[in-house]
């Protein structure tokens, strides 16, 4: 048995060696044709400086509405981590409170994106149900914002994360209009589009996004979508899942457990 395995191993090794040899022989010719700048395109697997290979990942987030306590620590941490202006008009993530009353009235609010907390004034109306909903860029599989960007300054990376190239953004704000979730804003100082990046600079270093790191109740789960052992896949297996505005066919990669019909 063992012998067998080592034999096939050797075969595979030999084959891959031959492959490498062929690539080595052909590469200069191929590059001659394609021009040296196309190097990355031919070798599809490419790395960032710290060895992170985008191709090997596919990121997503799970949010359990039943666990969110509306403390707003995620919104605070996000602003700290990503230098988002402190004013209440710019958010990469925020938390909404839904209060649904027995008379059919629905109140939604998010004072300063939840950073100032939620005031607790009493009414005579009887509450039917109430809950908090954290909102964030959905990192859609079919992102409308990427579709409309005229210059290619926002894009979906190979790891599924939707990023902005702020040096290339012209500030036309078409992406802000196209986002159905209100997840984008124009940075008041750089005058370029801004949005959640899943804390890209953290996840390439194996750290959690800041909002997930500080969530005290594990209402947010971050992880890989195509690895069986990831906490996110477990989250998707254990819960009934909903996404926001499914009818728009954006295919969000932020998944909500216990999502209410009133959440839009």
């Amino acid at each position: 048995m063992e012998n067998n395995i080592s034999q096939t191993d050797k075969k595979v090794e030999r084959r891959s060696f031959l492959k490498k040899l062929a690539i080595l022989a052909l590469a200069p010719i191929a590059f001659g044709f394609l021009g040296s700048t196309d190097k990355l395109k031919t070798i599809k697997k490419w790395m960032l400086e710290n060895g992170y290979v985008p191709n090997n990942h596919k990121w997503g987030m799970g949010i359990d509405i039943n666990k969110c306590i509306g403390c707003g620590r995620c919104a605070v941490a996000c602003k700290n981590e990503n230098n988002v202006p402190q004013e209440p008009f710019f958010f990469r993530t925020w938390v909404e409170r839904y209060r649904i009353y027995e008379d059919g009235d629905i109140q939604v609010d998010s004072p300063n994106g939840s950073i100032d907390g939620f005031e607790n004034w009493r009414t005579n109306k009887k509450m039917l149900r109430s809950f908090f909903v954290p909102k964030i860029c959905n990192h859609c599989e079919n992102p409308p914002c990427v579709q409309v960007c005229p210059v290619g300054a926002t894009f979906k990376g190979e790891d599924g994360v939707v990023l902005v190239d702020s040096d290339y953004c012209v500030g036309c704000r078409y992406c802000i209009q196209a986002c159905p979730y209100g997840a984008r804003f124009l940075h008041p100082e750089t005058h370029t589009a801004e949005k959640c990046t899943f804390c890209y600079h953290r996840i390439v270093q194996d750290k959690l996004p800041a909002c997930v790191e500080v969530c005290p109740t594990q209402a947010r789960v971050f992880g890989e979508l195509n690895k069986k052992a990831s906490p996110l896949v477990r989250f998707l297996r254990m819960n009934k899942i909903g996404v926001l505005k499914p009818s728009l066919n954006t295919e969000p990669k932020v998944y909500y457990a216990n999502l209410d019909m009133e959440v839009k």
Binding site: L48, Y168, E213
Partner: peptide, 21 residues
């Protein structure tokens, strides 16, 4: 356009941001 309709170096730029936490 090396890996899609965007500047490939922008991925690195996004990864280079400074951490706080």
């Amino acid at each position: 356009g090396l890996i899609g309709h965007f500047r490939a170096s922008s991925v690195q730029n996004n990864a280079n941001k400074k951490m706080q936490y």
